[in-house]
Design a protein around this nucleic acid. Sequence first.
DNA 1: GGAAGACTTTAGAAAGTCGTCAAGTCATCA
DNA 2: TGATGACTTGACGACTTTCTAAAGTCTTCC
Lengths: 127, 127
Amino acid sequence: MEGKQIPRPIYQVRAELFRTLAHPARIQILELLRDGEHSVAQLIPGVGLEPSHLSQHLGTLRRANIIQSRKKGSSVLYKVSDSRVFDLLEVAKDVIAASLSEARDILTQLEHSHMAEASPASPPTEP
Amino acid sequence: MEGKQIPRPIYQVRAELFRTLAHPARIQILELLRDGEHSVAQLIPGVGLEPSHLSQHLGTLRRANIIQSRKKGSSVLYKVSDSRVFDLLEVAKDVIAASLSEARDILTQLEHSHMAEASPASPPTEP
DNA sequence: GGAAGACTTTAGAAAGTCGTCAAGTCATCA
DNA sequence: TGATGACTTGACGACTTTCTAAAGTCTTCC
C-alpha cells in the first residue's frame, strides 16, 4: 500500500487503456453493460463464453478500473465506472466507418479504372 | 479479386483498432503526426527508437490504415489517414483523467478516515 | 452440517507481440 | 558505377495474452 508509485508517462497509460479494450469479448461486455448493471450470469449468454473465461475478462476490465463489481446475494453485479468509455467505443466505431467508406470509394475507383483493364500498374496492396 | 470476405463482427474490428493503438510508441508517433506530415528521420528523435524498430511500428499503423506514407526523394513521409483518431486519443486522455481524479478522491477519503488510526486493526494471518 | 449455485483463481499449452540485429531495397550523390 | 543515406523486412529469443480445464471461494437453501 505504499504510495511510492513511479508516474508512468501518459503515452504508456493510454496504451494500457487501449490494450485493455483490445479484445472483442471485452468490448462486447462493455456494450452489454451500456444497459446498466448485469450479473455475470446475465452476461454469459451475451458474450457466449464459459464462466471462467468471462470472469478473466471481467478481471482485466476491473483491474483497469473500467468496471466495478459488487456482490448481491450469491451473484456479482458489474457496471462501468465511468460512462466516458462508451464515448471511446463510439469514436472507435466512427473511425472504422470512415476508414471503411474510404476503402469502398477506392475500390469503386479501381473498378472504374479497370473497365478497360489491360495493365495492372501497381496494386496498392500490402503484402 | 472476388474475395468473399467474411464480414468480421464489429466487436472484433474495434478490438483490432484498439490493439493497434495499444503501444506507447505508436501513440507517440500519432501525437507527432498531429502536427502534420513527418519523415521517418524526423520521427526518430521524438520517439527515441532505432530506425528499424520505429519502422515496424509505422508498418503496424499503416496496415491498419491509420496512417499512410508517400515517398519524397529518398525519404518517406507519413501522415494520419483520418483525423478522427486524434479524437480517440483525446477521449482516452479524458477517461484516464477522470479515473485518476476519482482515485485521488478515494485516497483522500482514506487518509482522512485514517487520521486517528494507530493500530493495525487486524493483521491478516498468513494462510 | 452438507449440497448446490455463482463466480474466481490457478495451471499450462498454444499463439501472438516486442525489441534487437543483420540483411535487403530504393533513390541520390560523387 | 559504386558508395551512401533512408528506410523496410526477416529472423529469432524473451515475454505476454488467450483459452481450456480443474480446483477453490463464498452464499444460500435444505
